[in-house]
Every structure is written in structure tokens, then in C-alpha cells.
Simulated assay, not measured.
Amino acid sequence: MPLSRQDFRKQIRHIRNQLSDRQQVQAGQTLVQQFSSIREIEHCQRIAVYLSADGEIDTNPLIEWLWQQGRSVYLPVLHPFSKGHLLFLHYTPDTPMVHNKYGILEPKLNQTLIAPVNSLDLICTPLVGFDSQGHRLGMGGGYYDRTLESWFKTGLGPAPLGLAHDCQHVEQLPTESWDVPLPKIVTPSKIWQWES
């Protein structure tokens, strides 16, 4: 019997969480090298990233690198009134942080720091798993599918870029009609690219 999306989530999260601290640090640093080699990044000034949780690839080195490059970094915040949606807030080393309902750190809501999604140049998305066709398996909340819906339908707005460990790749994932395949996913060893 083929694995369900839930089975894949459980299996890949387990593998990801088995990585040692040393492997995580190494993966985060190597990710920056791959990321910095992407040509389109040169023109991106306003970049949404996320803070790693649950064994996700360490994004701290990437955030530090973006700051060093003089780029503006934005982090996702759960929308307080629109269930299942995200806001993106400008993030600096001094930004006050709070834990959201999932226990993930996010910037304390401050309306003056919100960037409309269409003002961003790139949205780095977390994922649990991805397959050889660019399909992304998230945690199941649909937050990024909703955020990227307009881009997926029109091709307008910030492009998504998946970030992952190499061990999160599987040959084929079961997909749903609302899934948004990603045009590009960066892992420490490779830049996976598909026609968007």
C-alpha cells in the first residue's frame, strides 16, 4: 500500500530529527553557499525566511548572511484575525520575539513592520518533504499554499524557494489539488530546479 501524506510526514520528520547538532550546523552553513550561488538572488532585496523548528535545516546562517549582504529579512507571523494566513514582518537582530501557538518564535506583532506579500522579492518556504517533480509537503496547515496561491495562478508576486535537508527528498509524494509545486528547492548538496 502506498504511503499517505501523513506517513511521509512522520517518516521524514523522524529522519530529519535524527541529524546531530554538528550535521545541522554543517547543513546550515553549506545551504548558504548553495543559496548565494543562485543568480536571481542578486536582484532580491526583500527576502522572507523563517526560523527553523522541528529539525528543519538551520536558517540562522542564511539570515546572518542576508544581513551581511545588506538585504532586508522578513519572518512569517500567524495572522491574528485571518485564520490560516501569514503576515510577514521586518526582522532585525533587535526585533522582539514571541512564541506562536505552535511554539515557534516569531516577531511580536507590530503593524509598522508588516510588508505586503507582493512587496517581497522572494519567499523561502519551509517544507517537510519534496519530490523529484518539485511537489512540497508541508506540515498540513496550508499557510504557504495560501500565501503562494496568487503567484501559483498568475506568476506574479514573489517567487517561492524551498529550503530543505537532502534527506527530505523522496521520489514521489502523493499530491492534492491545492498543492503549490515549487520552481526551485535548495538543499546543502544541490539546487533542484523545475520549470515554473
Results as ranks from 00 to 15, higher is better:
residue 144 Y to E: 03
residue 146 R to T: 09
residue 154 T to M: 05
residue 138 G to M: 07
residue 154 T to R: 11
residue 158 P to D: 11
residue 161 L to Y: 02
residue 151 W to H: 10
residue 140 G to V: 12
residue 156 L to N: 15
residue 162 G to C: 01
residue 138 G to V: 02
residue 166 D to R: 09
residue 166 D to H: 07
residue 143 Y to H: 13
residue 150 S to G: 10
residue 156 L to E: 15
residue 141 G to P: 13
residue 153 K to L: 14
residue 165 H to W: 13
residue 137 L to K: 01
residue 139 M to H: 15
residue 146 R to A: 07
residue 151 W to E: 02
residue 155 G to T: 11
residue 160 P to E: 02
residue 163 L to V: 04
residue 147 T to S: 14
residue 161 L to W: 05
residue 151 W to P: 11
residue 137 L to I: 02
residue 161 L to S: 06
residue 142 G to H: 11
residue 144 Y to N: 08
residue 147 T to F: 01
residue 149 E to Y: 01
residue 165 H to Y: 10
residue 155 G to M: 10
residue 151 W to N: 05
residue 144 Y to A: 13
residue 144 Y to K: 08
residue 158 P to G: 05
residue 137 L to C: 08
residue 138 G to S: 13
residue 152 F to M: 12
residue 149 E to V: 04
residue 149 E to P: 09
residue 139 M to L: 05
residue 165 H to K: 11
residue 150 S to H: 15
residue 149 E to C: 07
residue 157 G to F: 04
residue 139 M to Q: 13
residue 154 T to C: 09
residue 149 E to F: 01
residue 144 Y to I: 05
residue 146 R to N: 11
residue 141 G to D: 12
residue 157 G to D: 07
residue 161 L to C: 11
residue 145 D to C: 03
residue 140 G to E: 08
residue 137 L to T: 01
residue 137 L to G: 01
residue 164 A to T: 06
residue 158 P to K: 12
residue 138 G to I: 00
residue 159 A to Y: 12
residue 139 M to D: 12
residue 164 A to K: 06
residue 138 G to W: 04
residue 140 G to Q: 05
residue 159 A to P: 02
residue 162 G to L: 02
residue 149 E to Q: 08
residue 159 A to E: 10
